[in-house]
Design a protein around this nucleic acid. Structure first.
Ligand SMILES: [Mn+2]
Ligand SMILES: [Mn+2]
Ligand SMILES: [Mn+2]
Ligand SMILES: [Mn+2]
Lengths: 146, 146
DNA sequence: TTGAAAGTTTAGCATAGGCTAAGTTATATG
DNA sequence: CATATAACTTAGCCTATGCTAAACTTTCAA
């Protein structure tokens, strides 16, 4: 191949990547919420607004507003002044999220980063990992101490 | 260790991860813009609004609005109806972004995913990779076909 | 040299996701 | 059982990031 003839992707192809990122981010908050609600239910029997706000590091009112959107989206159910429950669809999303999150976090550990860094970086990375990349991470884990 | 005594992080520690993700996302758009502007200047001599909009897959007016914020942030300069330039700070951010982005993309390739998937997934992942994880990816690349 | 096309800007709208402050309900304690 | 405290909700504000439609400027070609 002649000098400086590396093929560059078309604008169309490039935009596909950014569209994927924007789609990932649209789904991200819902994914983190349902995963956290599932954790709270498993760890302490119920998921409360305050606990979610604490763990996310946001104000209570922010959680309330987001929960309304999740309810509209059919992921949770709630009654005034009561704890929060996941719908069947919510549980499914939570478990898919947990599975993916766990693989990404273990993968980072196996790559050699600290527990702390794996925990923190995986919280963002998990939402941008395609099925193909997740499989590659899984294989790496199987080869190395998974 | 007794059964089911895996130590769970405190709410404070957990919230740190989400705060990092929110901070990453605040910086993300600016990072992608300056990197793209740098690419356009290198590839075709100038960065135009329309080209940015095409590559991002958003409307022209969206780009105009975002560029105003970048100008306020001191990353670009522009005059009405003219092409866009990067400030010294803008170039620095663009080059840091390129370096990180390239490592993440090559890392995914070395992990065994397709060119296409590496290109797409790295566009989101790059913004959530800490210095420590980036170093670990670099080491992996050095060991395998980097 | 003068229009038409291409590119840029402005105006106005929407939603997501943050916040604080104030009001409401439930719960625990004396 | 009364009330203080904790938890939840509502109202109202803000910024970021999308959009369309309309107006404006530059550029290119006839
Ligand atoms: Mn997450
Ligand atoms: Mn990038
Ligand atoms: Mn990116
Ligand atoms: Mn992200």
């Amino acid at each position: 191949m002649a000098l400086a003839t590396k093929k560059l992707p078309s604008a169309k192809l490039r935009s596909a990547a950014f569209k994927r990122v924007r789609a990932d981010h649209s789904a991200e908050l819902a994914g983190d919420y349902v995963e956290m609600i599932a954790d709270l239910i498993d760890e302490r029997g119920e998921a409360r607004c305050t606990d979610i706000a604490m763990r996310l590091g946001v104000a209570n009112a922010t959680v309330v507003k987001t929960l309304k959107r999740l309810q509209t989206a059919g992921l949770i159910t709630q009654e005034p002044y009561r704890a929060i429950f996941l719908t069947v669809e919510g549980w499914k999303m939570a478990e898919d999220g947990r599975r993916k999150h766990a693989i990404v976090e273990k993968f980072l550990l196996a790559l050699g980063v600290s527990q702390e860094t794996a925990r923190i970086d995986s919280e963002g990375i998990e939402h941008h990992v395609s099925t193909e990349t997740l499989r590659a991470m899984g294989k790496f884990l199987a080869r190395n101490g998974g």
